[in-house]
Design a protein around this nucleic acid. Sequence first.
DNA 1: ATTGAACCTGAATCAAGTCTCAGGTTTGAA
DNA 2: TTCAAACCTGAGACTTGATTCAGGTTCAAT
Lengths: 200, 200
Amino acid sequence: MTQPDLTPKTARGARTQERILRAAEAEFGERGYHDGSIVGITQRAGIGQGTFYLYFKSKEDVLRSLVLYTSRQLRRFLSEQVIDIDDRLEAERVGFRAFLDYIAEHPNLYRIVQESQFVDAAVHRAYYDAFAEGYQSALSQAGFQQTIRDGDYEVWAWSIMGIMHFVGQRYVLWSDDRPRDDIVDAVMDLMINGMKAPGS
Amino acid sequence: MTQPDLTPKTARGARTQERILRAAEAEFGERGYHDGSIVGITQRAGIGQGTFYLYFKSKEDVLRSLVLYTSRQLRRFLSEQVIDIDDRLEAERVGFRAFLDYIAEHPNLYRIVQESQFVDAAVHRAYYDAFAEGYQSALSQAGFQQTIRDGDYEVWAWSIMGIMHFVGQRYVLWSDDRPRDDIVDAVMDLMINGMKAPGS
DNA sequence: ATTGAACCTGAATCAAGTCTCAGGTTTGAA
DNA sequence: TTCAAACCTGAGACTTGATTCAGGTTCAAT
């Protein structure tokens, strides 16, 4: 009843686990979670089917791993891009641009995160909670320094994530017919200045 | 090779088709599209399995029907709520509130629309394109009347949809620990005034 | 009362795909 | 060189569920 330890013990094992992860990213990204198969993953990885189960408990388990991986990688990437920008609004612009570039570069990972909502809702929610928390504290900091207005930063954080998600979906994943810079400008204009007419 | 006509010819048939649709809404909403089954749908509807195929080509087909149904119903509902409000910003507030109330009332339908992304991407995208178009033309109208600032209304429309989606997901579907009015106020504050600090 | 189009049934068919397992190979520390 | 832990294999046991179909029922028009 004690489940075996699935951690690779040698460099060879670590390499194989990594190949499985990359193969699963391609398989799920291209065919979706349900149509994607273990056979497909192991073939892409160039290993036997049984090998998959040396490193992952199940099909669901590898999806979870991919979501956690994406969460860490994307948050690290965004914070790296923004680390030495003092102005919050400028950081917002750079971060938004970096996000669009990331999903353009990793559409499969991004799709997998979305689909995880219907496979393991908890891991999907944890992904967004982690982002929201980071955003909210960045906004609080900026508010304290008077870089931005006072406001309900928790709700704002979720609003900003919503904008990023939908705009990224529409203008990067579905079609990239418009220059990314224009998109970023339009969004920043809305987020910074709002919709209110000048004389009112 | 000519596929049969699946339209109900009598009131009885129409009633049965409607029961299937409602049963599928519950089944897919509660168990998800993939875990949901035709057996489950037909049992909820109180009919035989074969009857399902008198009115729907396949499992996918009934999902498509539900998405189209939701698209029409939600857009009708929102435009009804907003029809005699002249001020666009006030209309925005009322529309947003109505949207939150709708998904609180119909979480299953809303989940199904989301999941359709991974079953029939075209119908999912059409759902959002229809909304975006409506939004964009409402914003253009308001811009013409100087109710709102000039801007990239297409990108703004997708931004607003993103906010509605994420905020609805977080504060209605995942948890309703905060009063809906507060949420609406916080979002409207951001959308109307932006984040910019007063003296800058 | 008759009739045929519309409607309904659910057991059987059939395809897919996850996960296990018994047996074989590789590796590196002693 | 030895040997035990780690690693790898892939056929097949097993489950699940969408869809079909041959046969039965309802109902409204004649």
